Amino acid sequence: MSIVELREYKLKPRMREQWLSWMQADILPYQISKGMRVLQTYIYTDENDAEWFVWLREFDNEAHRQQVYANTYDEWWRREIRPRVFEMIEQESIRVRLLSPVHVVS
């Protein structure tokens, strides 16, 4: 059964356009090249007018998820990309939720 990962990041003030541009130009193509399946990306504004970036990623199962993580988040990522990420998003705001499909009978 596939796993869908819902990730939410609170953007720092005035970082929306820079974040979205970087995600589109660099982050998403890099992660996809490493085997990440990105289903969709979203932006929403919460009740305090903070902007959040939300995205959905899909994996075949937990073993696949761990394999893709190992391929993606290497030393280069930790050294070069991770510091830049936290220039644009609030590190403590990161939320990752694993979603499992539910069959609902109507």
Score class of each variant (00 low, 15 high):
2 S>I: 15
4 V>F: 12
5 E>Q: 15
6 L>Y: 13
6 L>N: 12
7 R>W: 05
9 Y>T: 15
9 Y>R: 14
10 K>V: 14
10 K>W: 10
10 K>P: 11
11 L>F: 04
12 K>M: 14
12 K>R: 15
12 K>N: 14
13 P>K: 09
14 R>Y: 12
14 R>A: 14
14 R>L: 15
16 R>C: 08
17 E>S: 15
17 E>T: 13
17 E>I: 07
17 E>G: 09
18 Q>R: 15
18 Q>W: 01
19 W>E: 05
19 W>I: 05
20 L>E: 09
20 L>F: 02
21 S>L: 09
22 W>D: 03
22 W>M: 04
23 M>D: 04
23 M>E: 08
23 M>Q: 12
24 Q>N: 11
25 A>D: 12
25 A>R: 13
25 A>L: 06
25 A>I: 03
25 A>K: 13
26 D>M: 06
26 D>P: 00
27 I>Q: 09
27 I>V: 15
29 P>W: 05
29 P>V: 09
30 Y>R: 07
33 S>Q: 08
35 G>H: 04
36 M>H: 10
38 V>S: 04
38 V>R: 00
38 V>W: 00
38 V>Q: 02
40 Q>F: 02
40 Q>R: 13
41 T>G: 07
41 T>S: 13
41 T>W: 01
43 I>D: 06
43 I>A: 01
44 Y>H: 10
44 Y>K: 08
45 T>H: 03
47 E>F: 07
48 N>F: 08
50 A>P: 00
50 A>R: 03
52 W>F: 11
52 W>G: 04
53 F>H: 14
55 W>C: 03
55 W>K: 00
55 W>A: 01
55 W>P: 00
57 R>K: 02
60 D>H: 09
60 D>W: 03
62 E>K: 06
63 A>M: 09
64 H>Y: 05
65 R>W: 10
65 R>T: 02
66 Q>S: 07
67 Q>T: 13
67 Q>E: 15
68 V>W: 01
68 V>Q: 05
71 N>A: 14
72 T>E: 09
73 Y>I: 10
74 D>H: 01
74 D>T: 14
76 W>A: 12
77 W>V: 07
77 W>A: 08
78 R>D: 11
79 R>S: 13
81 I>R: 08
81 I>E: 07
84 R>F: 09
85 V>P: 00
86 F>C: 04
86 F>S: 04
87 E>K: 12
88 M>C: 10
89 I>P: 04
89 I>T: 08
90 E>A: 11
90 E>F: 04
91 Q>K: 15
92 E>I: 03
93 S>D: 11
94 I>T: 10
94 I>P: 02
97 R>Q: 14
97 R>K: 11
98 L>E: 10
98 L>K: 04
99 L>N: 00
99 L>S: 03
100 S>Q: 10
101 P>R: 08
102 V>W: 00
103 H>A: 11
103 H>P: 00
103 H>Q: 11
103 H>D: 14
103 H>I: 11
104 V>Y: 03
104 V>K: 02
105 V>A: 07
106 S>K: 02
106 S>N: 06
